[in-house]
């Protein structure tokens, strides 16, 4: 087999090279998928783990998305939770305040159509689909301000749907939280 010549030899060489390339391609794909799995396991950055429902008709009547419960809160167990609603054409609260370097649970839903939110300068990005709650674990490394546009077409006013996020030092946050149960940076 090793000393064959002629057209059959050429065909065998061609097939061998081709097989090697196919094997390499499979390895490349395997590495990519493996990387995503590895990061998923070790940095626990996976999509939201549970599906939760919310009725967009009655968000304002009862439950965690009523107006007075929106904004940033410190729960009984000491964790920081931000609750926000997306609607045509604003987020409420339209300015979210969070402490720096603290794990924050961002819970959002939509009151009408499909919206999305992303916080520029971070990799925080989620869809707000009416009927469901988007639940995200987020963390900000530095204090500062970010803009938070709606990233999904939600109607003719979509281009005007920009919110804000203000990241403050931990003691400043504690001071804000001392006087009120729910806070935001809406002036």
């Amino acid at each position: 087999m090793s000393s064959e010549t002629g057209p059959h030899h050429g065909e065998a060489v061609a097939a061998r090279i081709e097989r090697r390339w196919a094997a390499l391609s499979i390895v490349i794909v395997g590495v990519l998928v493996g990387m995503a799995t590895f990061i998923g396991i070790h940095q626990a950055t996976m999509p939201q783990g549970r599906v939760e429902l919310a009725n967009p008709r009655t968000l304002h009547l009862s439950g965690e998305f009523i107006e007075s419960n929106l904004g940033t809160s410190v729960e009984a167990d000491g964790s920081v939770v931000v609750r926000a609603v997306g609607q045509q054409y604003s987020f409420t609260p339209q300015c979210i305040v969070v402490p720096v370097d603290t794990p924050v649970n961002l819970r959002t839903t939509s009151a009408d159509v499909v919206h999305g939110l992303l916080i520029e300068g971070t990799n925080i990005n989620t869809m707000l689909v009416p009927g469901y709650i988007a639940d995200l674990q987020i963390r900000f490394k530095k204090p500062g301000e970010h803009v938070m546009p709606c990233q999904e077409f939600c109607g003719i006013g979509h281009q005007g749907m920009w919110g804000k996020v203000k990241v403050v030092e931990k003691d400043a946050f504690a001071k804000l939280m001392a006087s009120r149960r729910r806070i935001s940076c809406v002036e």
Binding site: G40, M46, G116, N125, Q151
Partner: peptide, 10 residues
């Protein structure tokens, strides 16, 4: 990849 997609989704 989910992790990279988060920074550019939409």
């Amino acid at each position: 990849s989910y992790q990279l997609d988060a920074s550019i989704h939409n």
